[in-house]
Design a protein around this nucleic acid. Structure first.
Length: 652
RNA sequence: GGCUGUGUAGCUCAGCUGGUUAGAGCGAACGACUCAUAAUCGUUAGGUCGGCGGUUCAAGUCCGCCCACAGCCA
């Protein structure tokens, strides 16, 4: 009986004329969060992203790079954008490229339809044309004779183009906005659009002469013209669905996630185009602000303060990057962002609050309950009630696009779970056999609380949420499953070994004040957290002086058998080893490629530092390091057991 | 110039249709605890809620003006 829930989310398609930056990534992460959340919450969900690949600017960039437009966009779309989004774990269902046949065909179809309906006409136009911005500009828009953002002054151009009768639909659109307050969110952007619609918006030029801009979709009834950017690009949101037979049921439920810089095309051009084409409107326009540097200034290569998303990804991982971007930004305004923000969120929320809670409950279950999850605890305790009611508080926050608050809500619960553990003192209960049942209830309650929290955080930390549950022997659950207490099955075996969920990073002491960012605009010394992958620490304090037996005991050394080994694709000195450590396998990246060939190592037993903080080396995760020694000539030799030991054996 | 936002504790932000001593997280200090990733928990931190004026029994929360910042339009 109940209506099935459907959700369709898109991002803007990225203009493939330069490499992706943090803004592109931010938007994909917002959309990914929405997509994952709705999937978890029982919506039939479809997530589209892609690249915009036509236009004069791309043709020029390609020529400059000495490539054909097609070669050029292929490399950027697949090699840069899509590859990065894959590494970021963006869970798109389809990746559309406007140069694909399926898209071109649909654009032509819609053009033809609107043309036949009489909403496209041919007219001549003369005016100042900005090549940089690919449009005609007015005198008033010029600053010192140049259109802002351009490097050259506009040129006088006379062109005959096709125009779409956009103005005709203005009253209708205005009324639609007034009747649907949630159509454009946050409301600040809606107000801006209402403002635009108070005055004539004019008709929209939708073609360019082919001899000047050959890189585009031909106008179906006039081979001398190609489709101009917006009438081409915007249609991707529908063309991708139609091509895959998914117009139904998804289109009506579309949420478009876009940056505020392209508000007008999405809020004005696009609805009128849809109306003219006889298509239903999208459901909601989700507008976000921009990512700024930590000092609140714009980010830019020329300012030297741009942060490289690929670098952030390597250093901090998918989950911390997603979480920090979602937790520390708001859509309504531009948000400052940078490494200290990620480190701070990673350490406090993810490592200390969430990861450590997992760690402590795991230890106690293994110690006090033989690693077996006890019977469900009562569902009427305050902490249980809070847990099952959490989704009801988080859900509306997500739908209202207040992601930062949604995540904070869950973290507050995690903190309450930590408090609960402190108050109940299971380590004391464990000393008294008469309090056995209470002890079990307490530990079960924490596991159940973590299960709930992990699901409600999963859209933001997709990998780690699953990993958290695996560390408790649990599988996957829906948001609805968090509204019932006691779904973690009694008798579940808690895995004995689990890596630290979120290893902490040490921020450099100078990071505290955001103002510390130098104001001169020079890159200077980046105040970034010190991540020490595998190399020995350079910290002078740590390098010398005797250590205690306790210090040594913190180092977990184990025998590991090499079950596979390959060269790192992007580094000459690195090998990627797959190690059998007894009850599980590990991937370790080691800088020994100059001395060992992959086949030399397979089958051999080495000594692994098993509790080293994981790190990414040239993009590949390394979960530990291999012991090796060096002679005076600099030759490196791996350390192996003198006699055979089983994989996983502890070394002391 | 017009318009729309934003301006709340050192930092990042909550505060719905006006109503007890203005809240949270981070950071800092002190204390408690030891199951845990030197983690956690508690207490404390005295912010004229950008400024001025007004409406009201009562305003961060409504109105007017002004200032700063962002953006849109012209």
């Amino acid at each position: 009986m109940r209506m099935s829930k459907v959700f369709y989310v898109t991002t803007a398609i990225d203009y493939a004329n330069a490499a992706p930056h943090i803004g592109h990534v931010y938007e994909k992460i917002l959309a990914d969060f929405l997509a994952r959340w709705h999937r978890l919450d029982g919506y039939q969900t479809y997530f589209l992203t892609g690249t915009d690949e036509h236009g004069e600017k791309i043709a020029r960039a390609a020529a400059k790079a000495g490539k054909s437009p097609k070669e050029f966009v292929d490399e950027l779309a697949e090699g840069s954008f899509r590859a990065l989004y894959n590494r970021l774990g963006i869970s798109y269902d389809d990746f559309i490229r406007t140069t694909q046949e399926r898209h071109k065909r649909y654009v032509q179809e819609i053009l033809q339809k609107v043309y036949e309906a009489g909403d496209i006409y041919y007219a001549e136009y003369e005016g100042l044309y900005s090549v940089g911005s690919e449009r005609f500009v007015t005198e008033k828009e010029l600053v010192d004779g140049i259109f802002p953002g351009d490097s050259e002054p506009p040129v006088l151009r006379r062109e005959a183009n096709y125009f779409f009768r956009m103005e005709k639909y203005r009253p209708w659109l205005l009324e639609h906005l007034q009747n649907n307050p949630d159509f454009i969110q946050p409301t600040g952007y809606r107000n801006e659009v209402l403002e635009m619609l108070k005055e004539p918006i004019g008709d929209l030029s939708i073609s360019r002469p082919k001899e000047r801009v050959p890189w585009g979709i031909p106008i179906p009834w006039d081979e001398n013209h190609v489709t101009y950017v917006w009438f081409d690009a915007l249609l991707n949101y529908v063309s991708a669905l139609v091509a895959e037979g998914r117009f139904e049921p998804f289109w009506k439920h579309a949420w478009h996630v876009i940056g505020k810089d392209i508000l007008k095309p999405h809020a004005v051009f696009w609805p009128t185009m849809l109306k003219a084409a006889g298509l239903p409107l999208y459901e909601k326009l989700v507008v976000h602000g921009h990512i700024l540097a930590l000092d609140g200034r714009k980010m830019g290569k020329s300012l030297g303060n741009a942060i490289d998303p690929a670098e952030m990804l390597e250093k901090y991982g998918v989950d911390a990057l997603h979480y920090a971007l979602l937790r520390d930004t708001t859509l309504a305004a531009d948000s400052p962002f940078g490494e200290p923000v990620i480190v701070s969120r990673l350490n406090s929320d993810l490592a200390n609050d969430l990861g450590n809670l997992l760690s402590r409950v795991r230890t106690m279950l293994l110690k006090y309950c033989g690693g077996v999850l006890p019977q469900p605890s009562p569902a009427d305790s305050p902490i249980a009630r809070e847990g099952v009611s959490l989704a009801a508080r988080v859900r509306p926050l997500v739908r209202e696009l207040r992601f930062n608050l949604a995540l904070e809500e869950v973290l507050q619960y995690v903190r309450n779970l930590n408090k609960y553990v402190n108050d109940q003192k299971p380590w004391e209960l464990a000393r008294d056999e008469a309090k056995r049942k209470t002890l079990e209830d307490v530990l079960y309650t924490v596991v159940e609380g973590l299960r709930i929290a992990s699901v409600l955080l999963e859209a933001a930390i997709p990998n780690k949420a699953k990993e958290l549950r695996r560390a408790l022997g649990l599988g996957d659950y829906s948001v609805a499953d968090t509204e019932t207490w006691g779904l973690s099955p009694a008798g579940t075996r808690i895995p004995e070994d689990a890596p630290i969920l979120f290893p902490k990073l040490e921020a450099s002491p100078n990071d505290a004040g955001r103002k510390a960012q130098n104001a001169t605009g020079k890159p200077a010394a980046r105040p970034e957290p010190s991540v020490q992958p595998q190399a020995a620490s350079n910290d002078p304090k740590a390098a010398n002086g005797p250590i205690s037996i306790e210090d040594f005991a913190r180092i977990e050394l184990r025998v590991a058998e090499v079950i596979a080994c390959e060269k790192h694709p992007q580094a000459d000195k690195l090998l990627i080893l797959q190690l059998n450590v007894g009850d599980h396998t590990r991937q370790v990246v080691s800088g020994i490629a100059q001395w060992y060939k992959p086949e030399d190592l397979i089958g051999r037993k080495l000594i692994l530092v098993a509790n080293l903080r994981p790190a990414k080396l040239r993009g590949v995760e390394s979960q530990g390091m291999i012991l090796a020694g060096e002679d005076e000539a600099g030759n490196v030799v791996v350390v192996t057991p003198e006699k055979d030991l089983p994989p996983g054996a502890r070394v002391r």
